[in-house]
Amino acid sequence: MKAAAFDYVAPQTVAAALDALDAEGEARILAGGQSLAPLLNLRLATPKRLVDIGRIAALRRIEDRGDHHRIGAMVTHAAIEDGGMALADHGMLAHVAAGIAYRAVRNRGTIGGSLAHADPSGDWPSALMALDARAVAAGRAGEREIAIRDFLRGAFATALEPGEMLTAILLPKLSAAARWGYYKIVRKAGEFPEAIGAALFDSERRRARIVIGALGSAPLPLDNLAARAAEKGIEAVALDAVEAALREAAPDLDRIALRHHAVAARRAILEALAP
């Protein structure tokens, strides 16, 4: 399949990109193209105009902002994997990035594109939710910050308004005591997962998060279970207990999916809490 015809613009600044988005006709942002290009080729997406944000230097930067890092939307999976910048995340982002697809995809795919695409099976939505990250959306009216939990509205649905774009992700710094775990069940290396479990325990910051991903909808936080695990430790999160908590939160899962997601979550928890 070949894409239907479209116009192509490559603005140099966020302001110019917002102008291009706003102009007449249906426009779509092109980041790394690793999700959008197949959609174009299959003619599942037929925008009139592509706004390539790859030339906007500001979107490729990672900045230290005191209690958090600001990661530009166009930072690639590969750049995060290679870890050029200390993120005060105990290596969680680099670990997650290294598990996305294959290097060729990681060279082009971006953290912003992945989050904006909001594929339920994508890695960043689950990982960034567990980290309590925030999305920065830019529009004509300026920038606004949205917690990832609110940003992800469902499968392929986000809180971005028409004419808005995602410019950065704000990643809170973890304390020295923080521990994380991340586990994916995949049929083969580089494929989209059957289930994702992400866990984060930061006792100093009084944060405990367990997030279940690859559900067919937005990632699901299991806060009560996380609190119990933080308080009582590994014994509180036997497979049965995780499965029960998940069944309550996601009653539509079939038997196998329930088990897969519970196992992924439990392994992430064990990884985080293991002595």
Binding site: I185, E194, R259
Partner: peptide, 9 residues
Amino acid sequence: PRRVLAAIL
């Protein structure tokens, strides 16, 4: 994985 797990369950 789905079929193998189904057999186990």
